[in-house]
Design a protein around this nucleic acid. Structure first.
Lengths: 225, 225
DNA sequence: CTAGTCCTTAAACGCTTGTTTAATAGACTG
DNA sequence: CAGTCTATTAAACAAGCGTTTAAGGACTAG
């Protein structure tokens, strides 16, 4: 049933390895060892390592795309609930990344540190998610939002989520052990959702108010050396 | 005046290189070339490459620490204004990172991808910033916040800022060119500040309201393969 | 002057990397 | 059967890496 061809065995072996250690740290010898294949096969089937990586990313994208045509939310679900679902699903994917399938790991790697032409597919993998999020945002504010504000609101939401992945190390250092229990996915999702809901509500409202009193360009840090 | 000793020349040369290309991609030969010094000097003065890196990070931290005892805000400044200043300063540091001094680049690198024992100094470099932010948060909400909520609020704020660095590539891909102009530091800072202000205001208020109606553990994505 | 310490040097070592070669075996074809 | 194309192999290649060696120069102290 499964494709046991040499070429495919290489791809199957390369996926998890690239996902775990990244392009640079992955060696063709390790990949070929895992695939139980001679090193020369890479030249034979893929030309070189870079090309193998590209095909691996492509494969990961396709596998995910057919597995997840991003979750359709029922129309009757409230926008608030949709937001929570989005946030919680994203958080879950990000923080459970340790145990995530290699396809997700690999795509995340590309998201954080895009290589070459792959950013094209980063785009067509993540854009749909983002658009669906923006749809929820639209429902949450009364009246249409200017396009750039719409985008910024979206970034604010996913920024808060992604921080628990990007800044994972730092978060752990800053949360004292006795409060560690309050940082489970559900509770973080709950916080972010509330924060964003009330953030969005007040958002359009006071868009006129000035934050800073006029005191010149002060409060700037001294210029860098 | 300046320390022209061989050891110091190596450190001066190593800093920008590690900052630019990271530990792995930096080669001792390149560093020694830049310092105009023999490769063996690294063994002589630092033992090995890893140790040189450690001393370089240490040096960067010290230089920044004496340059920036994190900005004291005047007591009469409003909390709203303080928040804006914080956000805008952080954004500026992050997005102007292209031209940032190597010390900042290097420390950021450690923040995003901590190596070994260095996370200790990641902590004592960033914790003070974070604490000062939490102080501002305290002023912005009426009544004391539970400790974990306080932390989460802080993470929400810096998460939104950091996203413009971490997700820089993706942001650029998702912002169409005609709205690019609306993504200058001031405007992003303005957005984030407003979003957080109204987020924080409503935050404590509706902490009782349930977001999700009870419909079981649904809306979960299908389990990963 | 001599001995000893500190520093610097060119060269090589040993290892790993991606890539390539050339030989081989098998399957299919005319 | 001879010939050709496909697939696979062990081995070597060339380049880069961090590290080490051993020798010698420059200087100071006895």
């Amino acid at each position: 049933m499964v494709d046991e061809s040499t070429k495919n065995r290489i791809l199957q072996a390369a996926g998890p390895i690239f996902a775990d250690v990244g392009y640079e740290h992955a060696t063709v010898r390790e990949i070929c060892g895992a695939a139980d294949v001679n090193v020369a096969s890479i030249k034979y089937y893929f030309g070189d390592k870079k090309n193998l990586y590209l095909e691996t990313v492509r494969q990961a994208r396709n596998m995910r795309a057919e597995r997840y045509p991003f979750p359709q939310m029922a129309a009757e679900t409230s926008a608030e609930e949709k937001l929570y679902d989005f946030v919680s699903a994203l958080l879950r994917r990000l923080t459970a990344l340790q145990a995530a399938p290699w396809q997700v790991k690999l795509l995340m790697r590309e998201l954080m540190d895009p290589t070459d032409a792959c950013r094209m597919l980063v785009k067509d993998y993540f854009q749909p998610m983002f658009d669906s999020l923006l749809g929820v945002v639209d429902q949450l504010v009364e009246g249409p939002l200017e396009p750039d504000k719409r985008l910024k609101a979206g970034f604010s939401i996913i920024g808060q989520c992604l921080h628990y992945r990007y800044g994972n190390e730092v978060v752990n250092l800053m949360v004292p052990p006795e409060h560690r229990a309050a940082f489970e996915v559900e509770q973080i999702a709950d916080h972010i959702t509330r924060f964003c809901l009330s953030g969005l509500r007040g958002y359009a409202a006071d868009s006129t108010k000035e934050i800073r009193q006029d005191r010149g360009p002060a409060a700037e840090h001294p210029s860098e050396p």
